[in-house]
Nucleic acid binder design. Structure first.
Lengths: 306, 306
DNA sequence: TAAAAATACTCCATAGGTATTTTAT
DNA sequence: ATAAAATACCTATGGAGTATTTTTA
């Protein structure tokens, strides 16, 4: 009626052994059991697979063709079963969404660390703003996201990784004109440049500077952090620079000056998010641990530098 | 414990439907039946394949990987089952052995006829002398052979196809010196050129000429019929030319002359041979019928020509 | 509360085993 | 006569069904 893997397994053994009895032995079943399954397979395929002779069997043309398919199918399934054992972490590709103000600064180190770690998982990165990657995560198009917490969405599980503090960034001239001690909410919003709408960093910066104080005057809607950095370097205003991005941005904008805020320093919480599910997922914890280690190390470096 | 095609089928349906109940419906089983098989598959693979959410499911990375394999495996098996229906004649490649004194003369027409016929079978030709192809047939390395009957071996089934009569061939000078009516056994053996040992044609020619009359004097052990033809054309003696080869050989050796023997003309019986097996083999009869038709047509032509 | 999946339990189909017959050399 | 595969028959595993519970949104 229907072809089964068992039938294909028995048939492969029969073709290899050339004899029903020996084939049955290698399959650890009785000879009639194997005979019946071969007959069943022949009935399904509508033709003989082997010529039965007194001392041996010979494959028919159909049998040879079926044998090839059987080989392919069985090896595919065997690979599946085998991968179940040898799998550390998980099989397959983990689709990871990362927001643009994190991706270029965290991923180089993070991917290197993942590659080196025991959890051998392939990662496929999707870069997108918070809402977009969270939508994809919810739909099932992504497996996890790295972004600023909290997400404030239902059905998601958040795991904090590290704190990314904000530094004040400006041109040398502007920064020298500043007083020594700066409190974030003392910044006049008119001085602050922000990324274009949609970047969570924009909202966070507004929150840090105390939105309530007056109407924000966003001079430029820069589309990326490097662009924003260049504008600030050129003296068009100040901005809040995440520590995470500091080293890279300084390398590209030598005229930029950074200054730490007084304690308590404002920060964004970087976290890993996945769909909430009751069943434990091996890879999530391991991935988060690795990212946490990498992220904290980067923060250490940043604190030594500024 | 072991992966089954049923599990893969159910899993594929689940991935497509995104929901256990609908997947179960498309498989025409109850929801618990499908649930259990999915759990079984997950147990075999040692990891979750789907995340269970309230209104839908999402594949895990492992699930996506398994789904790809499942697609490949199921489509291979489906192709097998499907080919069982659409198969005319047989599937696969028929390995056909043919002796050298038949192959080049019969095969061009025969293969064309097979290609045109409804029995769509791929044929792979092995050319070799009688003993060699029969050994391969017995071993199972060939499925059938075209050669001169009888084979006089056990375990083989012979099917006569057509009679290939022998013509007397010689140079123009020699043939003009011959009397009008020739009886085969009247030929002096010393005039006759034969192929080298191993060709059945050699034995047949000796039998035709009445071996008992005296010691055969084989002037040349030619390795192929075309070679033999050239020697004869050059006047080195006479030979027996199978009607089957006559047309081709005449084209290559314009100086050659052919003469029919008086009735009863000597001939070799061309037949198709396979391993004897009690189970009926669809292709054998169909193949034999086609070959018989082609062979008889060639014989008709030959008789009109000489 | 409603919808979906998991669990519990029962039943039956079928794969497998033993004993035997049939077939081919 | 012997060796191998097919057949007959019985048993037991496990896949599927119904009813129910659990879970999550």
């Amino acid at each position: 009626m229907t072809i089964t893997l068992k039938q294909l397994t028995y048939f492969k053994a029969l073709a290899e052994q050339g004899n029903f009895r020996r084939a049955a032995e290698t399959c650890f079943v009785s000879q009639p059991a194997l005979s019946v399954q071969i007959q069943e397979l022949e009935r399904s395929l509508g033709g003989a697979l082997v010529e039965r002779h007194a001392r041996r069997i010979v494959l028919t043309p159909l049998g040879r063709e079926v044998l090839e398919t059987a080989h392919r199918v069985l090896s595919e399934v065997a690979a599946l079963e085998h991968s179940a054992q040898n799998r550390q972490g998980l099989g397959g590709v983990l689709r990871l969404g990362v927001i643009p103000t994190i991706a270029p600064y965290l991923l180089p180190d993070a991917l290197a660390a993942l590659r080196a770690s025991d959890i051998s998982l392939d990662v496929q990165i999707t870069e997108g703003k918070t809402d977009r990657v969270l939508d994809q995560l919810t739909e099932g198009a992504l497996d996890a996201c790295i972004l600023a917490l909290p997400t404030e969405r239902d059905g998601l599980e958040e795991r904090p990784l590290f704190e990314d503090r904000f530094l004040l960034a400006g041109s040398a001239a502007r920064m020298e004109a500043m007083e020594t001690h700066i409190r974030p909410d003392a910044l006049s919003e008119r001085q602050i440049l922000l990324l274009e709408d949609g970047h969570c960093l924009t909202d966070q910066a507004l929150a840090v500077c105390g939105r309530g104080r007056g109407h924000p005057r966003i001079h430029m809607g820069a589309s990326s952090l490097p662009t924003l950095t260049r504008l600030v370097e050129a003296g068009f205003g100040l901005t809040l620079m995440p520590e995470l991005a500091a080293r890279s941005e300084m390398a590209l904008a030598p005229g930029l000056r950074l200054r730490r805020f007084d304690d308590p320093e404002p920060f964004r919480a970087i976290g890993l998010v996945r769909r909430a599910t009751r069943q434990p997922t091996e890879w999530f914890g391991a991935l988060a641990d690795t990212l946490e280690t990498v992220g904290c190390a980067l923060m250490e470096d940043a604190r030594r530098a500024v």
